[in-house]
Write a protein that binds this DNA or RNA. Structure first.
Lengths: 212, 212
DNA sequence: CTTAAAAGACCGACGGGTCGGTCTCCTTCA
DNA sequence: TGAAGGAGACCGACCCGTCGGTCTTTTAAG
């Protein structure tokens, strides 16, 4: 692995653990086993490194979270797969993001403080939310979601649930509690389907509508 | 306002905006209009200040978020009121927390980095989650929630939704989008009630069960 | 031998924290 | 009653370490 790649990769990990502001260049130098000269030979400044790392992080995010989605036709199954990927392939990815979701870390440390950096990070959030919204809309059109489901509110639930889950995963670093919170979102999504779609809703009692 | 109170109050605000690690004592000195001597006359260290500010933040949180709950008998109405308080009285409280939820900020900057500080913050999360769980359990026992509702999953949804909402509020600082995400949680909560409880579900089409 | 990569000495700014000192106000005793 | 004394709030110069960043020197590959 070339030095430049070592620097970006170690920065990715350190930023996800400590954030950008609290990671010093000496931290990065040590992790990448290099020196000031080695670092500044490849990057003009810490901020230049940030922008490059952000782009890399976004591309890894896409590769992890959107994995296998294009092989799925059903929009609601796509959302489900996205949540599973988010849980298993992205948040649990210790190799790239040992400190949890790097975008959440960035957004918390940059708001009120570094609006120019914040903006770049926020774009990713907007994109994810729009994607969720579009998938749910399309799922509703196809009859995969009940007709009275409000897709705006469902998007809010899933989106804020994803962000909240990753914050809480950072707090306790417990795989089982991450599974619980993402699985709650998946069950919620399943619950939006029409009753004749429900095959594995796994609620306490099954299908109370029939009982009425 | 005495100097010590000015210091704690300004620290509260600065910590909520910039976090603990990225707030310097000079920032605090400037905001509280004092000097090194003035600061260290009241606090032994920056960390000692942190613990005091944390306790104050928690007591303000309780006062804001639990306001009026003891006058309510119904557990599910308590959860609803809590969410409204969280939205209107806590997150929008610019006087004390101009940077949004201080606990989220702390938890993101401390995980992987300052476990001893993290622990104190995490206790608050545990307490809130347990409170939500207990209220939903009790609501279910009283028949305010449908019998097939899984209170564990419902707790996950509301809890992670609250955390996610406050992160996203920090990102865009928009009252309307905060309202949207918290209102989605409230609507979700309403949706857990038995059908004969539903009076203002305000979904797109009303009460599809009747139609069947 | 050339040249790009990497090393590390060095710089000024700023971090948390210390310390000698001043100023104000309250106590105390003639 | 009023001057002496003492306590503690507050000030700011200073300490040492670390920050991001620069620059010259050394290394090593072609």
């Amino acid at each position: 692995m070339r030095l430049k790649d070592r620097i970006t990769h170690e920065s990715l990990k350190l930023f996800s653990e400590k954030g950008y502001l609290n990671t010093s260049i000496s931290d990065i130098m040590e992790a990448a086993d290099t020196s000031k000269g080695g670092f500044y030979n490849h990057y003009d400044s810490k901020e230049a490194l940030f922008y490059e790392v952000l782009v890399i992080a976004q591309s890894i995010w896409r590769e992890k979270v959107l994995y296998g989605l294009d092989e799925i036709d059903s929009p609601s199954a796509k959302v489900k797969k996205l949540l599973e990927n988010y849980r298993d392939r992205y948040l649990k990815d210790d190799y790239n993001f040992p400190g949890g979701c790097i975008f959440v870390t960035f957004s918390v440390e940059f708001d009120d403080q570094r609006p120019e950096l914040m903006q770049k990070v926020a774009q990713g959030f907007v994109g994810l939310k729009r994607m969720l919204k579009n998938l749910l809309e399309e799922g509703k059109e196809r009859g995969e979601l009940r007709s009275e489901v409000n897709t705006d509110r469902a998007t809010e639930m899933i989106f804020s649930g994803m962000i909240g889950s990753s914050v809480l995963y950072g707090v306790d670093k417990s795989n089982t509690s991450l599974d619980k919170s993402i699985n709650a979102l998946i069950t919620y999504l399943d619950g939006l389907a029409p009753t004749d779609f429900v095959v594995d809703l796994n609620v306490d009692t099954e299908n109370h509508l029939v009982e009425i």
